[in-house]
Design a protein around this nucleic acid. Structure first.
Length: 368
RNA sequence: GCGGGUGUAGCGUAGCGGUUAACGCGUCUGGUUGUGGCCCAGAAGACCGUGGGUUCGAAUCCCACCACUCGCC
């Protein structure tokens, strides 16, 4: 279980792989839609399968608070609960503790925080995060880490003195053998800290390695640079997971730099905010230019039977169907992009594919 | 018919003698990367019901008219 076979290499450094999980094989590079509260908002598992999704991410923090991880366990685990029989991944709750909780207190042992739902007090430690994730029962579980602001060298350096021991504690606390524990490399935008973090984790022989703390405010150029630094120092024969990244141009640029797994709320969040991802950018369907536009979003969209004018109407009227249709479109768009990239890698022409795909996107700026 | 009240941006309102008439919603345009159906930033939009008067100066005070509204015949 959890073998990672590399099945194709591209001159760029990108690779295709097969990651074996108890609920099926992931063909990488793969994009995972996010199902925070045990649902990819607006979509059923049936829709996800038809769109070609293979991996779904769900959130430890959210499920712990509501409905509770022990309830999910008692009802047969997360796969059974949400009726998704493919591979699942849960994050550790670390990120949400930092991004959603108003008041939180970090110490060497863990984090005390308040629920964003009712203000009640809670505490996560590496041990409790693993226990919750074992109750949920995803195929891939994540180490409890701290996601620090990426530009503050002293803080990021000190943060590693928590994240690294926490990873070892996660390993020690883990009991189930049917779940793969991934470590999360931190280190902000600093080369020495990133290399230090990767060097610490590589010998732990984890089934996979995530890159955290990116796409949190630094520039795209800085993010890509971090990926290039990590490329030679992460174990080659293990999947590499870039957490929270899902802008189309970022997916392409990260696959070029050796990333195998992605997750992101972007396609479903943009959908709920009325924006459609299309080749070369995105369409804000609130814009008046679509008022009488009878064309589909794109010819190959899973919702190509609907006009932009109709979708604009649904968005402006805040109709539920707008969320459903645009979620189908945006998730489908990213999954199709991943499929195209896997084929390009097999054909050893990813650089050409990327150059063609990225020509319509703006160049990454040093500071944004 | 009599008496009272109200007319300010598409809608709801604030301002009640003193720069360039304000706010919310809506509209328009950006933003959204390990998810609060949000949120943030910017823009357009007003013969202040109509006509007259008082005043250095009127959305603001006075008169008439019109419209809406409440009460009473």
């Amino acid at each position: 279980m959890f073998e990672f076979d590399i099945t194709a290499n591209d001159d760029s450094g990108a690779r295709c792989g097969r990651f074996h999980t108890p609920h099926g094989i992931l063909e990488t590079p793969v994009f995972a839609p996010v199902g925070t509260a045990a649902t990819v908002k607006a979509l059923q598992p049936r829709d996800l399968r038809e769109l070609g999704a293979s991996l779904v991410l769900s959130n430890t923090y959210h499920l712990y608070l509501r409905p509770g991880d022990t309830l999910v366990r008692d009802l047969g685990g997360l796969h059974q609960f949400m009726q998704w029989d493919g591979p699942l991944l849960t994050d550790s709750g670390g990120f949400q503790v930092f991004s959603l909780s108003q008041t939180r207190k970090i110490d060497q042992d863990g984090v005390t925080f308040r629920s964003h739902i009712d203000g009640s007090a809670h505490r996560f430690t590496p041990e409790s995060s693993i226990a919750i994730q074992e109750n949920l029962g995803a195929d891939i579980i994540m180490a409890f880490d701290e996601c620090p602001p990426p530009n503050d060298y002293d803080y990021v350096k000190q943060s590693l003195t928590r994240t690294h021991p926490w990873l070892e504690r996660c390993q020690a606390a883990k009991q189930r053998s049917d779940q793969a524990l991934f470590g999360i490399v931190q280190g902000g935008i600093f080369r020495d800290l990133r290399e230090e973090s990767a060097a610490f984790m590589a010998p732990l022989d984890l089934p996979g390695y995530a890159i955290g703390g990116l796409a949190v405010g630094e520039s795209k150029a800085e993010m890509y640079r971090v990926l290039e630094w990590l490329q030679p120092v992460l174990p080659r024969h293990k999947p590499r997971y870039l957490m929270g990244v899902g802008a189309p141009e970022d997916l392409v640029n990260a696959v070029l730099r050796g990333i195998d797994i992605f997750d992101c709320v972007l396609p479903t969040r943009l959908a709920r905010h009325g924006t459609a991802l299309v080749r070369g950018g995105k369409l804000n369907l609130r814009n008046r230019q679509f008022e009488r536009d009878e064309r589909p979003l794109s010819e190959d969209s899973p919702i190509a039977q609907y006009s932009r004018a109709y979708l604009r109407h649904l968005v402006k009227a805040n109709e539920i169907l707008a969320h459903v249709l645009l979620s189908l479109h945006n998730v489908g768009f990213l999954l199709d992009l991943m499929t195209e990239m896997r084929q390009a890698i097999r054909d050893n022409r990813l650089r050409a594919f990327a150059a063609d795909f990225l020509v319509e996107y703006p160049e990454p700026q040093e500071q944004e």
